[in-house]
């Protein structure tokens, strides 16, 4: 088990119902894709937020990463929808 801080933004945050949490992750959660699959087992709110996995963007330690990125060593992982600033 390793503990990681997760942060959520926009409708991902609203659907999960919180902006951040610290979670213990099983050892078989290796990549962002594994993390999304794991989170979806935690309850309906996660299933709803992460239903369309392909649109979910991720950042590790505040840098954009793809779903295949290993999460080893991550202090903070962020999940959010495509960005709409500017």
């Amino acid at each position: 088990m390793s503990t990681v801080n997760l942060v959520y933004f926009s409708w991902v945050r609203e659907r999960i119902g919180k902006g951040e949490e610290a979670l213990d992750l099983p050892a078989d959660v290796v990549t962002i894709a594994d993390l999304l699959a794991h989170l979806k087992t935690l309850g309906e709110e996660y299933e709803s937020a992460l239903e369309h996995e392909s649109v979910i963007r991720a950042a590790i330690n505040q840098e954009h990463v793809g779903h295949g990125e290993p999460i080893a060593g991550a202090r903070e992982i962020a999940l959010f929808p495509p960005m709409t600033g500017g």
Partner: peptide, 20 residues
Amino acid sequence: KTSAPFWKKEHHADGSVGEW
């Protein structure tokens, strides 16, 4: 616009909260 982490939500003139 495509990679800075900002998100916009609409608030409507009729008082309702719109969509992201």
